[in-house]
């Protein structure tokens, strides 16, 4: 399972509930992606959760890794799809898994995230 390190910005004045959004992502991707702190060992990629468009999270310690960035709840769908695609590639060859995964990607497109930005 792909390990995704979560790196939050400091949350000084966020436009949305970053923690709630990550919880939704965790639920959506349960079984496919394991979310861990960004400074955990053996992470495959990083999810930077930024509270606003300033996106000031310090990513210097993870710059060698692929980084997905969420700056608003609207970014969550695309991120979820991208993380699932990565999971699929990692398990390439496992036919039953791919089928399961494709249906899951379809599912997440049909179920919008509930966390909203106050700017919407």
């Amino acid at each position: 399972m792909r390990r995704v390190g979560i790196k939050y910005c400091g949350g000084c004045n966020p436009d949305y509930d970053r923690v709630a959004l990550v919880e939704e992502l965790k639920n959506r991707l349960a079984g496919y992606v394991e979310f861990v702190p960004y400074d955990a060992e053996n992470i495959d990629m990083v999810l930077a959760v930024e509270g606003c468009q300033t996106a000031c999270a310090d990513l210097s310690s993870v710059k060698k890794l692929e980084v997905y960035i969420i700056k608003a709840p609207g970014d969550a769908e695309k991120t979820a799809e991208g993380l699932k695609e990565k999971a699929m590639k990692a398990f390439e060859g496992a036919i039953h898994f791919s089928c399961r995964l494709r249906s899951s990607i379809s599912d997440i497109r049909m179920t919008p995230f509930s966390v909203k930005s106050h700017l919407n």
Partner: peptide, 8 residues
Amino acid sequence: RPEHEDIM
């Protein structure tokens, strides 16, 4: 708290 450590 992970959601604030970048500032704190």
